[in-house]
Design a protein around this nucleic acid. Structure first.
Length: 153
DNA sequence: GCCAACGTTGGC
DNA sequence: GCCAACGTTGGC
């Protein structure tokens, strides 16, 4: 089982929105970055996903989800009315993909970015690396262990 | 293929 | 709102 982190702006889609979604499952639409897309294409059903809230008052990891469906074409790329529309994505050769994620849990104690920065063992964690803007990336085992330990407190 | 200009991300 | 960092675009 692989572990991932996916960012979302809670004003747009939050962990609470995932709780409220039908079957507590939602398509992770709107990713328009090739590296993030490529990571989603390698996800497997059952993989763990940390849900991170960005561009908000208190950025941090607020919950966990599970990959519920393998990557498939993101239909919003073909919808001219969507914010995520991409005229250059050909339906016959889709450019953008997404997975479905199913809610697993909200963290009793969120892992706030401001707190995570205090742990030297997370210094090289992708999330905390200078200039990191990637919205989907793998969480390596050592960092997974630290995050699990911290969220268990 | 280079690289300047531009757009986006995201913390603060 | 600011701005650093990064990705993408497009002229050459």
């Amino acid at each position: 089982m692989a572990v991932w982190l996916m960012k979302t702006e809670p004003d747009v889609f939050s962990i609470d929105d995932l709780v409220k979604a039908a079957k507590k499952t939602a398509p992770w639409e709107g990713v328009r970055n090739y590296q993030a897309r490529n990571f989603m294409k390698t996800m497997e059903v059952g993989d763990l996903v940390y849900i991170y809230h960005s561009s908000c008052e208190t950025p941090g990891i607020f919950g966990k989800a599970i990959v519920a469906k393998l990557a498939y074409p993101d239909p919003t790329a073909f919808d001219a009315k969507s914010d995520y529309y991409d005229a250059k994505s050909d339906p016959k050769n889709p450019r953008w993909f997404m997975v479905d994620v199913a809610f697993q849990e909200k963290l009793a104690k969120p892992l706030l970015l401001s707190d995570l920065k205090n742990y030297p063992e997370l210094k090289d964690f992708t999330l905390l690396k200078r200039g990191n803007r990637l919205s989907v990336f793998p969480v390596q085992a050592p960092y997974f262990k630290v995050l699990e330990a911290l969220s268990a407190h």
